[in-house]
Simulated assay, not measured.
Amino acid sequence: MSAFDRRNFLRTSAAGALASATVSPAAFAQSNAASASTPAPASAPNARPPKVTRILAEFICKTSYQDLPAPARKEGVRTLMNWVGVAVGGSHDETVSRAVAALTPF
């Protein structure tokens, strides 16, 4: 079983998204028009913020589950289940306590 390094995964997936994503001006015409009407900060009158979030969002929307490498899929499922476990385990609600008591034999 090979170890999966989350930091390396995040670093390479972000770099891959930035390197391979292309943003079509037509795809975000409304968004670009809205951001053009927003005044730039006083320190840099002609500077516009980078569109890293937009590029990353487009990459995420276009990527399917099958496009991800098997170790990334496994880590994603493990991380989601870990989050659910922590959320349930950290809850002090009576409903969660009853659900945990009901599932304890399994």
Rank of each mutant, 00 (worst) to 15 (best):
T79Q: 11
A102D: 14
P41D: 11
L80E: 06
N8R: 07
R7Y: 02
R78F: 01
P25R: 12
T38Y: 01
S31Q: 14
V96I: 11
E94M: 09
A70R: 14
P41A: 10
H92M: 05
M81V: 15
R7F: 01
F59Y: 10
H92A: 06
S2N: 08
T63K: 13
G85M: 03
A99G: 07
L80S: 14
A40M: 03
V52H: 09
G76Q: 02
I55G: 05
L68C: 13
M1G: 15
R6V: 01
A40Y: 05
G90P: 04
K51W: 00
D93G: 07
A42S: 14
A40I: 02
L68Y: 01
T79W: 07
T12H: 08
P105E: 07
T104V: 15
A34W: 01
S43C: 09
F4Y: 10
A3T: 15
R7I: 00
S64W: 03
V88T: 12
P25T: 07
T95W: 00
T104R: 15
F4V: 15
L10R: 12
P105R: 02
S13D: 00
D93R: 08
R54L: 09
F9V: 12
G90C: 04
R7D: 11
A47D: 11
D67E: 11
F9G: 04
A70V: 13
